[in-house]
Nucleic acid binder design. Structure first.
Length: 723
DNA sequence: ACAGGGGGCAGGGGT
DNA sequence: TGCCCCCTGT
């Protein structure tokens, strides 16, 4: 077979990685160096040249998005769908293994995955059941405590609280929570991994089965793996599988949630792999790359890597200092408009920021200018309240013991089952060590409820049982549709929420029915013996679903630096380059976190292909208070010869010059006053509604007839007074 | 059962 | 400043 197409588009280092013979491989892949391409070609190479069965390959990624992309590109390269090839996230793969061996893993066949919100609610429930002071033991940090220990592979009995009463209580909550999960057949995200690790560790037959199966294991974004994931890799690999690991220590930005960048060097030590560096960048201009290299060079303990490009020098990096966050947003949007006017597409522009709260001003400005945009990281489909309500019914149909689902929907829509009734059910369930649904059924049968509540509970139990009856012959879509109809959720929202909100919820429910109707069960799930219903529920939990549609619309992309990883854009804005914001205050206080912030800066800069702007505001509204800030230290780390100050940084005003003037403008040397009618060449006619600052800093807020309210700097705005 | 007000809080986020 | 959670009052 002619396999030249697998190699001809690769550079030397990439080719070396793809064709590596024998042993393990560690690919240190810099930003934009084609690591996905290497992974995809490696898989194709193994299948077509080494005739490895797709069944013998395991490829692990971090996000479903990355898994989907890899799957598509492998299919494209091979010209066929490689059946039996496992490409997925750690969680997806562990889930599949647990489904196939639920019994041996000590789980019921119908075990259900808890998402973060379910987990939070359940932990809160446990804390309340233990009658702990919720002020002293809040559920959020407790959730962090439990997940942190699970991510390190620790069960409650592995934790040494050193006689610290507070820690002892936390461990007790962890234990009770875990007991609850066991009783109800619930598995949280970390549990998927930990349970799989324990299964493969303690069950020699299963261990052998997977070690025999997977001769090759490929892992992407290795710098983001945690302790548990590395342990999993080692146990699946045994001493036979060949590991092909791709990572970039300079792009490790998830230390705060347990990722261990040390896993990369540990891997090099534990497996003695051939180390291949991909240092040629195909994305950014030489200027951008050089600047990014210089910033990251300030970090210690790097594995060493220097990106280079054959590309052109490109434009200088532009740095803009704004007086306020509003002005920063105006500047960014004005530059986006320039880009559009020069023939660029909106979707080629990305505005990146450190924290989500910063998106608002950009949204506001883009909206005012009529430029379409999309904010990443909003609420996801399967996390919406109405979807979780409907899915709660589905989960109960699938597994009566799913207590979180029971709690969620027992009185949604309201059917007269109040807190007292539910508390009675909880008590009964706890004392007879059973689930809420079973307890409620027993109480109904023994007449333990008062008449009114009893009828309501009986009716609810009946609904679930009836729906289950129906599923025997109905399709997933029909079941979903029956749920939405029987529960009459649409009416429920219409009754208690604003019309437009209720309408959106209704549309989402329709969308959910359509999703159920068109659900295409993955072949590998079917082979693992999952029912379509089980597959659907798992997918809803594991892939909460993208924001909402419209991916392909031409719009400006707004996102945090974290969510920008792996993406690239011709035009990039790195906003809010201020001490305290970026690097974030909390990071400067925690040891080791500063270098992670710097890596985040590096990730942000290397997203840019052609044009890169960095901006900061000298004052911004934070938590309801205006505060002044200093430029980020990362700006000082940029080589001066590569940057261009869009506006020379003005001397910081001290004392009276800045402080004295509220609206009305102390020391205003211009002839604008409140109420003046003015004209601006692009925004048209408007009225002055606010003034502040003086001299070069003087700004006015104008309410434009068509463009809305804007803050403008007088020395730049070129306003004409009309009255 | 539910609305409405007060108080505490404010990082990043995929599975 | 705005959001979310909890508590209280009806």
């Amino acid at each position: 077979m002619d396999v030249s197409h697998l190699l001809e588009e690769l550079n030397d280092a990439q080719r070396e990685a793809v064709t590596a013979e024998d042993g393990h491989v560690l690919v240190l892949a810099g930003a934009g160096s084609g690591k996905t391409r290497v992974l995809v070609h490696r898989i194709a190479w193994l299948i077509q040249v080494h005739h490895v069965s797709p069944m013998g390959l395991l490829a692990v990624t971090f996000t479903n998005k990355a898994a989907g992309e890899m799957r598509a590109r492998v299919g494209q390269l091979l010209g066929l769908r490689p059946d039996g090839l496992w490409i997925g996230t750690f969680h997806g793969i562990c889930h599949r293994i647990l489904r196939m061996h639920a019994d041996e893993a000590g789980l019921p066949e119908t075990f259900q995955i808890l998402d973060s919100e379910d987990q939070y609610r359940l932990i809160r429930r446990v804390i309340r059941d233990m009658e702990l002071d919720e002020g002293e033991y809040p559920a959020r940090p407790m959730q962090g405590f439990i997940n942190h220990h699970k991510d390190e592979g620790r069960r409650p009995e592995h934790i040494e609280p050193f006689d610290n009463p507070h820690a002892l209580t936390q461990v007790a909550v962890y234990r009770n929570y875990q007991d609850y999960c066991e009783r109800s057949g619930l598995v949280d995200f970390a549990e998927l991994l930990l349970r799989t690790l324990e299964l493969l560790r303690d069950n020699p037959a299963r261990q052998q089965q997977y070690r025999d199966r997977f001769g090759h294991i490929l892992i992407d974004e290795f710098q983001d793996t945690n302790k548990l994931q590395y342990a999993l890799v080692r146990i699946i690999a045994g001493d036979r599988a060949r590991l092909f690991v791709v990572g970039d220590d300079d792009q490790s930005i998830y230390g705060w949630r347990g990722a261990r960048v040390e896993n990369v060097s540990d891997f090099a030590r534990d497996f003695d792999p051939a180390v291949i560096r991909l240092e040629q960048n195909y994305r950014s201009t030489a200027t951008i790359l050089e600047a990014a290299n210089r910033v990251i060079a300030n970090n210690d303990e790097r594995m060493g890597k220097n990106l280079w490009t054959e590309g052109e020098q490109g434009e200088p990096i532009r740095v803009f200092s704004a007086f306020s966050a509003e002005e920063e947003a105006e500047f960014v949007v004005a530059r986006i408009r320039d880009w559009l006017e020069q023939g660029g597409a909106a979707s080629e522009a990305a505005v990146l920021y450190r924290s989500n709260a910063q998106s608002r001003l950009f949204e506001h400005q883009l909206l005012a200018e009529g430029i379409p945009y999309r904010v990443y990281g909003g609420q996801r489909f399967f996390e919406r309240a109405e979807i979780k309500d409907a899915m709660g019914y589905l989960r109960l149909v699938h597994n009566r013991d799913d207590d979180p689902a029971f709690e969620r929907v027992v009185n949604v829509p309201s059917r007269g089952i109040g807190e007292r009734t539910v508390a009675a059910i909880r008590d009964h369930a706890r004392s007879s060590n059973t689930s809420l649904f079973k307890a409620a059924t027993a109480m109904r049968d023994s007449g333990a409820f008062a008449a009114r509540a009893g009828n309501a509970v009986a009716q609810f139990l009946q609904i679930i049982n009836d729906l289950d009856e129906r599923t025997r012959e109905a399709s997933l879509g029909e079941l979903m549709s029956a749920i939405v109809e029987t529960a009459d959720l649409a009416r429920w929202y219409r009754q208690r929420e604003a019309p437009d909100r209720a309408e959106t919820r209704e549309e989402n429910l329709t969308e959910l029915i359509r999703a159920a109707e068109t659900f295409d069960q993955p072949l590998e799930d079917e082979q693992a013996g999952l029912s379509p219903l089980a597959s659907f529920l798992a997918q809803a939990a594991l892939e909460a679903g993208e924001h909402q549609g419209e991916k392909w619309q031409d719009c400006v992309q707004l996102m945090t630096l974290h969510s920008a990883k792996g993406l690239e854009f011709p035009l990039v804005f790195l906003s809010g380059m201020e001490e305290g914001l970026f690097p974030h205050q909390k990071s400067t206080e925690e040891p080791g976190r500063l270098s992670e912030e710097r890596r985040l800066c590096y990730v942000g800069m290397t997203r840019a292909m052609q044009r890169l702007y960095l901006s900061y505001a000298e004052s911004r509204m934070l938590h309801g208070q205006t505060s002044t800030s200093y430029p980020s230290r990362f700006l000082d780390e940029l080589p001066e010869e590569l940057i261009e100050q869009v506006r020379p940084k003005p001397a910081r005003y001290v004392g009276t010059a800045f402080g004295g003037g509220s609206a009305g403008g102390a020391g205003a040397e211009h002839d604008f006053t409140l109420g003046s009618t003015v004209s601006h060449e692009r925004f048209g006619i408007g009225t002055v509604v606010n003034l502040e600052g003086s001299g070069a800093n003087a700004r006015v807020q104008i309410n434009f007839e068509s463009a809305g309210q804007k803050w403008l700097v007088l020395s730049y705005a070129n306003l004409e007074r009309l009255d």
